[in-house]
């Protein structure tokens, strides 16, 4: 091409268009933990590979950050995760030698219009597509068993704590009763009957137990936030470790109050059975 013809082409706008910019890397989401641990930022372009050696790496752009769904079974493991479009993931990890690799997935989530018909749906699908492994997500699995066992363990620990607390309470009530021996003697000497004093002891036990139980619940509510914050920081998770629900508070009070009353009655029993003169050491 001569210079003249080149100039002509330029003047008429017939020059070859410039090369198009490279396509924007596909978008991905990364977990908050991955973003922090690798010091990434939104909009960064990162390379991912499906191979530990880093071969066949592809570039992706961080479009967003997400908080992984907390999983108690993975406590202590930092969720360094990324979410890719399925087509991008298949292109990244598929074995080039296996033509079917880009068409296979590990699992398919199905949301039924009528969840109550899950069993019938699974039976039907098993007949239509043999070889599929179907599992109802609402069905119990090993992780459920783990938490049932942990629940039993917590219950056992609570039982031991209640026994220790009851002994402590009984010791306190015995000392309280000892302190009030002279008072009880005077009350008996001025004519109050055993039954009347017994009711007073019961009432006192009830008040002390109620006050103690309510204080305990209040303390648990106050500590709940601190406890959760500490363990959420410790494990870098959004899991809630302690939750004081009305049902739990009611359960604690329903155990503590009868125990408190029982402790005050047991501690006072010896005192109530003695005669007024014996109490007055006469």
């Amino acid at each position: 091409m001569s210079i003249l013809s080149a100039l002509f082409l330029f003047a008429t706008g017939a020059v070859p268009p410039p090369a198009p910019p490279p396509p924007d890397p596909p978008a991905i989401l990364v977990s908050r933990q991955l973003l922090a641990s690798e010091h990434l930022a939104l909009g960064d372009v990162i390379a991912l590979s499906g191979d530990p050696k880093g071969s066949r790496a592809r570039e992706f752009r961080i479009a967003g950050v997400y908080e992984p769904v907390p999983d108690p079974a993975r406590l202590g493991m930092v969720p360094l995760e990324a979410r890719l479009h399925l087509s991008d993931l298949l292109a990244l990890i598929a074995d080039p030698a296996d033509p079917a690799a880009s068409e296979s997935v590990r699992s398919i989530g199905v949301k039924l219009v009528s969840p109550a018909e899950a069993s019938a749906f699974m039976r039907d699908l098993t007949v239509r597509v043999p070889g599929l492994l179907l599992r109802e997500l609402a069905a119990s699995d090993d992780s459920d068993v783990t938490f049932v066992v942990l629940d039993r363990f917590h219950l056992a620990i609570s039982l031991v704590t209640v026994i220790a607390s009851s002994i402590f309470l009984l010791a306190l009530m015995v000392m309280l009763v000892d302190e009030r021996r002279d008072t009880v003697a005077v009350l008996r000497l001025i004519g109050l009957r055993r039954r009347r004093i017994f009711i007073q002891v019961l009432a006192e036990g009830l008040v002390i137990a109620l006050a103690g139980a309510l204080f305990g619940v209040l303390l648990a509510v106050v500590l709940e936030g601190g406890f959760n914050r500490f363990f959420q920081w410790r494990y870098d998770t959004a899991l809630v470790f302690v939750r004081v629900t009305p049902a739990i508070a009611a359960r604690a009070v329903s155990v503590a109050v009868p125990l408190g009353i029982l402790a005050s009655v047991a501690a006072s029993w010896g005192l109530l059975r003695r005669g007024a003169m014996a109490l007055a050491r006469r």
């Binding site: 620990i157 031991v160 026994i163 220790a164 002994i167 009984l170 010791a171 015995v174 000392m175 000892d178």
Partner: peptide
């Protein structure tokens, strides 16, 4: 001199110590 109190104290420590 106060056996009840002492026994309860020991039992309390035993329960706490066991845990």
């Amino acid at each position: 001199r106060q056996p009840g109190r002492a026994i309860l104290g020991i039992l309390g420590v035993a329960a706490v110590g066991a845990l």
